[in-house]
């Protein structure tokens, strides 16, 4: 007979299936080891190995590598393009966080609080770009920005603002800014849903209490909704920052390839250029280490800044 063995402490897991220790470990090994081996080979090993590569000069194949100590790091700190790529990444982070959060909060509040009967329609439409391929988004928007045929320039001409038309993605001053709109366009839906989930969980009694105290809808938003969805807002901001720092280079690669004249290069696209187009793999790995460090540091600092005691009423 096999019975649940009571433990003095509770972990939420039970050992009912254990017939003998040996069988338990065999089953555990069956469940965990193949997966862990694959994970180690294709995720853990490459990450640590990337760290190791950053101390080598490797051009071409992996056989021809030469230990160079901190040379790649010295090169990193004196490379003029690097500070620009970091700034471009943070520019995208900041504009995306502001743009997405303002719009997502507005839409989430509108769709949950204001009893609009076609709300499900908006929800379904606004979320869709989130599951579109970055390639499709990038190419679609590159066409929208097209200097001759594009929607933006046609629209400006239609409004009589010919002076404002320009080759958006080919203009050194405007290319980076032009990348913000597609990123926001594609990003809002997920955060709208996250915030809607948070708002749906707020008890109606808070709003009733606020109304009795004479708070208008605007005050209710600032005093009730916003503080109570703070956990969701915090998660959303962190998520936008992480996904931008770890993935902004994809839309850059599709839309501008880092140009014109490096004005849209972000850290990841510069890594791609150095490693996979110019075959400076060692230096590419050094840029990768920088991305890792910057991304982890940013998340840590942000978590500290956003730390705010849970609101209790």
């Amino acid at each position: 007979m096999r019975f649940h063995i009571p433990y003095p402490y509770f972990t939420g897991k039970s050992d009912w299936m254990v017939q003998s220790k040996k069988q338990k470990y065999l089953f555990l090994a069956f469940c965990l080891i193949p997966t862990f081996i694959m994970f180690s080979i294709f995720t853990l090993y490459p990450l640590f190995s990337g760290l190791y590569y950053s101390f080598f000069d490797m051009s071409g194949s992996s056989q021809a590598k030469e230990f160079v100590g901190f040379d790649n790091y010295i090169k990193l700190f004196s490379d003029e393009i690097i500070p620009a790529t970091i700034w471009h990444d943070y520019f995208l982070v900041i504009t995306k966080v502001i743009g997405i959060m303002i719009m997502a909060v507005f839409i989430a509040v509108a769709l949950t609080q204001l009893k609009i009967k076609e709300a499900p329609f908006y929800r379904i439409i606004f979320f869709f770009p989130n599951i579109m391929s970055v390639v499709v988004i990038g190419i679609l928007w590159a066409f929208i920005y097209n200097p001759d045929l594009g929607l933006i320039n046609s629209g400006l001409e239609f409004l009589g603002l010919e002076n404002w038309t320009r080759a958006w993605l080919g203009n050194e001053n405007w290319a980076l800014t032009s990348l913000v709109l597609p990123s926001i366009w594609a990003g809002i839906g997920l955060f709208m849903l996250l915030l809607m989930g948070g708002i749906a969980n707020i008890s109606k009694s808070y709003y009733e209490a606020a109304r009795i105290d004479g708070a208008n809808e605007w005050q209710q938003f600032w005093k009730v909704t916003l503080p109570l969805v703070w956990p969701q807002i915090k998660i959303s901001i962190l998520y936008i920052v992480i996904t931008t720092l770890n993935g902004s280079f994809i839309i850059v690669q599709v839309m501008t390839g880092g140009g014109p004249n490096n004005t849209t290069h972000v850290m990841g696209s510069y890594l791609y250029q150095q490693a996979f187009q110019q075959y400076n793999f060692g230096y590419g790995a050094t840029i990768g280490v920088m991305i890792l460090v910057i991304s982890l540091l940013t998340v840590l600092i942000l978590q500290f800044i956003l730390r705010r005691d849970k609101v209790e009423y």
Binding site: L51, G288, I291, L292
Partner: peptide, 19 residues
């Protein structure tokens, strides 16, 4: 496993290429 979701994999792609 979960923290691997937050790690930028770009760094790993270079060794993965050779692997």
């Amino acid at each position: 496993y979960i923290s691997a979701m937050m790690i930028p994999m770009v760094l790993g792609w270079i060794p993965l290429f050779f692997l």
